[in-house]
Amino acid sequence: MTATTYGAGTTTKTAQPFHSVPAVDGLPFIEEAGKVAPKDARQLSKLFFDRLQSLEEGTAAYSYARSTLIEMNMSLVRFSARRFRGRGPEEMEDILQVGTIGLIKAIDRFDLSREVEFTTFAVPYIVGEMKRFFRDTSWAVHVPRRLQELRVELAKARDHLTAVLDAVPTIAELAAYLEITEEDVIEGLVASNGYTAGSIDVPAGGDEGEDAGRSYTDTIGAPDPAMELVEDFHALAPMLGKLDDRERLILQLRFGQEMTQAEIGAELGYSQMHVSRLISRTLAKLRAGMLTEA
């Protein structure tokens, strides 16, 4: 990392990464913020966030601090995008772009007084934007690409045969025209239902009786807030396997059996303070493992 120190009497000349924005007094000038190592980025981010809170929005100083924070933490966007690997290059580019939007939202809303690491605060924002992208642009349900392409071919064939036959073609006629089996036609037609989804607010009952006016929303259960934790638990499982027996036991007693630190200490022959340190150290190890998996 190449930097210029201001106010200390020493200056190292470097090329500015933001040519229209001068370095800010009290902040290091970072030549290539996107290449700062994650460990250094965490320390520098605290400095920049602290300074950002005292700067006036819209000033050159504020823009410099905010832009540097975005570039330094782009590794969080790339890390979050790994769970969507396997997509095409163009789709991955879109994922990184919407992830960057999440990063910017996290930077604008982060407050050092929360006493939480920025990485922990930012990742849910980043992943949330990525998931929203898929929700808004993807099929209503997951459908294999083969069936997505078959849906298009079936739609073209149905339009053509309808014009030629002056009637809606049968499954057999569609199969003969496309030179595929009737089973493939049926599978394609069923899969095409996954392209759009009906609203659950549409009335499901008839015009009379107790179901009149009721929608599907009225018949389903309430959202389970724990569902958002499923993915986190899945990522946490291998980290737990790397803990030693004592660490796993203490976590089991504290969070599984909901014992107090004093009760755990009495059970294992440790002081309450020692149990507190062990729990904090173990949780920090798990948190670091999940954030630095990349």
Rank of each mutant, 00 (worst) to 15 (best):
R146C: 08
V143D: 14
A222C: 00
L150A: 07
G209D: 10
N193D: 04
V185Y: 10
A37K: 10
D232I: 06
F121Y: 11
A191S: 06
F18N: 08
Q97V: 07
G205F: 01
T5C: 05
D25C: 00
Y62E: 11
L236W: 05
T119P: 02
T181C: 04
E32T: 14
I180G: 06
M130G: 09
M290D: 14
G205W: 03
G194W: 06
G88M: 12
S199K: 07
E231Y: 04
L268D: 08
A191M: 02
M259K: 14
D201R: 09
R114Y: 15
A3H: 00
A222M: 01
E129N: 03
G194N: 08
T2H: 00
R66T: 05
G241M: 04
L76E: 11
A175Y: 09
E91W: 05
S199P: 03
T119E: 15
V77Q: 01
E173S: 15
L150C: 02
P144N: 09
L96I: 01
V24P: 03
M239Q: 15
D166F: 01
R85K: 04
E258Y: 15
H234K: 01
S20G: 06
A106G: 12
E153A: 10
F110Y: 12
S63D: 14
L76W: 08
E263F: 02
A167Q: 06
T162S: 04
E153T: 07
H142L: 10
R109G: 14
G58D: 14
L174W: 06
R82V: 09
K13I: 09
F29H: 12
D40L: 10
S113V: 09
M1W: 03
A222E: 04
G198C: 03
Y195S: 13
G265C: 03
F133I: 06
A235G: 04
D40Q: 13
F18I: 10
A61K: 06
F121S: 09
I95G: 10
I30F: 15
S138I: 00
K285W: 10
R51H: 09
D218T: 05
K131R: 15
L243G: 10
V77M: 03
D108A: 03
L147R: 12
E208K: 14
R281I: 00
V190F: 05
E267Y: 02
F110P: 04
D166W: 00
K39T: 06
A163H: 00
H160Y: 07
E267K: 10
L174C: 07
E56I: 07
F110M: 01
L178T: 09
I279Y: 13
G206I: 14
Q257W: 11
V116S: 12
G58E: 14
R151T: 10
D136Q: 15
G194R: 04
G206E: 14
K156H: 15
L161C: 01
S54W: 00
A176L: 06
A204D: 01
A226S: 12
R254F: 07
D184E: 15
Y195L: 11
S45L: 12
F255E: 13
